[in-house]
Design a protein around this nucleic acid. Sequence first.
DNA 1: TACCAGAGGAG
DNA 2: AAATCCTCTGGTA
Length: 770
Amino acid sequence: MKTLLDASYTIRDEKPVIRLFYKLREGMNVEEVMDFQPYFYATAKEDLEGLKEKIRSMEGVVSVDSREMIDHGRERQVLRITVRQPRDVPSLRREVKDLEGCEEVRETDLPFTQRYMIDSDITPMENAEEIDLRVASFDMEVYNPQGEPRPEKDPILMISYSDNKGLKRVWSTKGGDLGLGYVREVKSEKALIKEFMETVEEREINIIVTYNGDNFDFPYLKERCSFHKITPSLGFNGAAVKLERRGMNFGARIRGRPHVDMFPVCRQLFNLPRYRLEDVYFELFDKEKIDVKAGEMHRIWDAGKGEDFKVFFEYSMSDADSTLKIAEALLPLQYELSRIVKLPVYECSRTASGQRVEHLLIREAHHRNILVPNKPSDRIFEERKDKSYTGAYVVDPVKGVHDNIILFDFRSLYPSIITSYNIDCSTIDCDCCSGEKHRSPTGHYFCKNREGFIPTVLKALVERRVKVKKKLMKEKDPARKGLLDVKQQALKLLANSMYGYFGFPRARWYSRECAEAIAALGRQYIHETIEKARESGFSIIYGDTDSVYLKLEGVDSREEIMEKSEAFLKKLNSELPGDMELEFEGFYPRGIFITKKRYALMDEHGMLLVKGLETRRRDWADIAKETQERVLNALLREKDPEKAADIVKDVVGKIKEGNVPLKKLAINTQITRGLGDYVQPGPHIIAAKKALRKGLDFKQGNIVTYVITRKGDSISDKAKVIDFVEEGDYDADYYINNQLLPAVMRILEAFDYTEDEMKGLGKQLTLDSF
DNA sequence: TACCAGAGGAG
DNA sequence: AAATCCTCTGGTA
């Protein structure tokens, strides 16, 4: 049994050698492949043979063969050009493309190792669960007397390490006398780095995990290594850590020992106000992590004794520990995605959903002898980006409070439309079938004769998922159940990104027409559903894309509601084509609808479900969100408007008194562009710029946590990054009028309360609306 | 008061 | 480097 952890290539004697890093039950095996040569394709305008001869004589070309492949759904003759070395591809693609008679060069941008894995049908991470991988996490604390640490000057103070076989270590140049079992005091920073690297080697670690190692720990470690003139040799056979550019960020690649950075993984997987290690740890395990303020670290270190000093070491250990715990929870999904998409886990864990889908499609295209379309040029990308299309339909809600709400929704609406209507670039407006075709409201037709490429791939994903879910139902063993659940999640993730991929301007298989047709069919079905529901006696409260919220006016019996719902669904589903299905999704005794995409429901257990309201948004202060939720509970669950009003009055009072803790006043907002690129910088940008001058580091992608303080004129003037704000320094007026009241008044207004009453200025509350 | 840029949510 | 629809805020004229 073996599992492929990593793949790369080197050049030996002017020839490429593929290296496959397998973990066996015991130890590693590196397989070398010498006989695989890089190649790409060319299509000819007319004279294929003429083009072939021209290419054959070019420097670096090993051979040219013509073969039949499928392009845009049709068979045609193309040229396959085999070259000596991977580096010959970029140079030769230019030359071939510029030849008279050459129409296009194709498949010139697949990385050589990936090309090999596709052609040899190699799946990474197979058997990963059975083979007992050794996973280690590490984290560094560095000296930072100037605020942000300077890697060319400021040393690493500690490296903490934790592996899934139970070893815990903190290497440091101090702290051996603290009585903490895991601390190893060493004589220098250099020794500390070396001991860490030796431990990874000795423990035969297979996977290294970090939290933001791509952009902090590894770049810093590399700098410190070059300062000490040593190699950061964490890879197989002492290979050095390599920093690769990946878009705006870095990726730290370790040969033969995949590095998975949990930070981008968590950002992709969770929706949180912030993504610091402690935030994600809390989200997953509901436990607080010990914290040491970054600004105080150098002072604690310099003091070198006392309780703080000990806590600093415990904090460092807990960083490595919690990173490992997070990894143990999230790696199974990464392994599974890596297997399905067939990209090594280092790459797969860093790719976005569009690229994952694309790699899966490239794989499937190869199996079907389909010539992969080229990536769009910058010009085409811009053209595509400028042309948007009509998407989903949203029903304007019947605003206010409703009782006994029924929710129906389409199971996987877009995927089921794609498969049921056979929507694909190769089937759109085909001329192959003379008879009936699938019809979209956009005016396009889809072939009923031959199944399209993407519908085939999507169908396979959906069918695999159905099988896994069946197994899951039968399985008793919790460990195996967990793995099956992860598997179905991964399949769902990929299936759900197919529609978005059609409309993604950078996609190779981009088709605005297909995306448009899918969305239009979605609108058609939701409209039809609403129409039929009305005819069956339901009244419509709200609907969005694939869901409808309904009521049966005057029907209070739960039984009758269920019966009528079932009957309606049965009839409607019998008329739906293919894989499409409308499902009963829920029953809610009470709910309040504010506007489109903003509402709250109470389920039968009294649990609140809030959508779109401030409670759900990171860019509102906790004090407003918390109070809004309390008000919703008072109104929906307890039906007690007086209590709701009391809650608001009480909180207004507390804010005025000035003793609301800063934590509850913090607002989180992301910096979505370069700090200089703003036409209208908001309060978070102004706050970040001020913090920048005080030595804090802020850049695109970061989330700014700020508070509106008392000092300043405009709101932006008053905005300050929370690190620099003293407890009690907040603008009470702002938090009452711009945070608390807007959030709660939207709810209370549906119950006819006025703002003045809430501030305690007006008359006593009335119970009119109840 | 009207408008725009910007952000983040829903599905 | 998945799409569109939608609401709301803060700043400006």
